[in-house]
């Protein structure tokens, strides 16, 4: 019987020599590049992108991607506290309608509507969801899933806030640059801010709640209060996206509560790898342009997201980002055994 030659994968750290959590000993320019490249490259790319796509159809796609990236980041933030939201559309829609409503009925200028929508919307959502926080398990998902759908129904049947027609001809952004850069800077701040926040002591408490809320309670920490804070932060991000979108389109209709704004960010976050924030951003920046390319599919796009979600869950549960990260930090080579 011929002995089959078998190989085993060996992983070797590519990392720089002395490395603890917070202290880097930089010994060479190479180390510096190794360390900073993955952090600065995305920032620079994002900031430069608008120059390449200026004014065109792809600028819209870029803006769109940023919107969904914000929603995905907000989802990921809640998920790292153990709150699995199935209703990013709730935040998005609330933010959109608050800014749209203020602009339409009270003629407020943009620089007021967006901050008010961001903070007020976050507060509204937090209050709405506060009592659900007491429940464990999937209850939160269920409630968040149906609330936006019900809000959409509500606006339609009661004919409030513009009803099925929506609120039209709202104030546009003074310039296209402003909208795109607001969105991009929003994404950058959230991405790096969340990454920083979650590794701080505050973030440790939040992650602790996800891992074992009993231990956190025994540690003298009011978990509901911290969960509420997490929802507020995530809600603010979602509402901010909604408000931006409203003024970008100069229109808000009940479609802002649609399932799209839940499913696409979710698919992006799961595809990219939950828990890293970078994954959520990468995921949405892949999915949104992809779905623009696949425009011809029309209604099937939603189905496609569903398929991507399932496939990502089954095939690559760690997500793209963790995979890339591993590849970046480690060599892999085959060793004969």
């Amino acid at each position: 019987m011929a002995e089959a030659v078998r190989y085993r994968k060996e992983r070797i750290d590519r990392g720089i020599k002395a490395r603890t959590d917070t202290i880097y000993v930089l010994s060479s320019f190479r180390d510096m590049v190794y360390l900073f490249l993955p952090r600065f490259l995305p920032i620079i790319l994002l900031l430069l992108l608008p120059f390449f796509v200026k004014g065109g159809y792809w600028e819209k796609v870029l803006f769109y991607s940023c919107m969904f990236a914000l929603l995905a980041l907000s989802w990921d933030f809640m998920a790292s506290v153990g709150l699995v939201s199935l209703g990013q559309a709730l935040f998005f829609g609330v933010g959109a309608y608050i800014s749209g409503g203020l602009n339409h009925y009270f003629k407020m200028p943009i620089f007021l509507t967006i901050p008010i929508a961001t903070l007020g919307g976050a507060l509204f959502c937090t209050l709405l969801l506060f009592s659900v926080l007491r429940l464990r398990g999937v209850y939160f998902s269920m409630v968040t899933l149906i609330l936006p759908l019900l809000f959409a129904h509500l606006i339609e049947t009661l004919d409030i806030l513009g009803g099925t027609h929506g609120l039209l001809s709202l104030t546009p952004f003074p310039s296209g640059w402003l909208s795109v850069y607001l969105a991009i800077i929003g994404v950058i701040i959230c991405l790096f801010g969340f990454r920083k926040l979650i590794s701080e002591d505050f973030g440790l408490v939040l992650r602790g709640i996800k891992d074992d809320d009993r231990v956190v309670m025994a540690g003298g920490i009011n978990i509901h209060w911290y969960k509420a804070q997490a929802i507020f932060i995530a809600g603010a991000v979602g509402c901010f996206a909604g408000a931006l979108m409203t003024h970008y389109y100069q229109f808000v209709g009940r479609s802002v509560f649609a399932l799209d704004y839940t499913v696409l960010p979710l698919a992006g976050a799961v595809l990219g790898g939950p828990g890293s924030f970078a994954g959520a951003t990468i995921g949405t920046f892949i999915l949104v342009p992809l779905s623009e390319v696949l425009r011809a599919l029309g209604g099937l796009r939603m189905a496609l997201y569903g398929v991507i979600l399932i496939a990502a869950l089954v095939i690559l549960p760690e997500g793209l980002f963790h995979y890339i990260e591993r590849r970046y930090h480690q060599f892999e080579r085959d060793v004969r055994i």
Binding site: V84, L86, A267, M302, Y305, G306, V307, I310, L313, P317
Partner: peptide, 14 residues
């Protein structure tokens, strides 16, 4: 649980 929730929702959408 997270994945179960997401997977059934995804199946529904498909």
């Amino acid at each position: 649980v997270v994945n179960e929730v997401i997977a059934t929702l995804a199946a529904a959408i498909v």
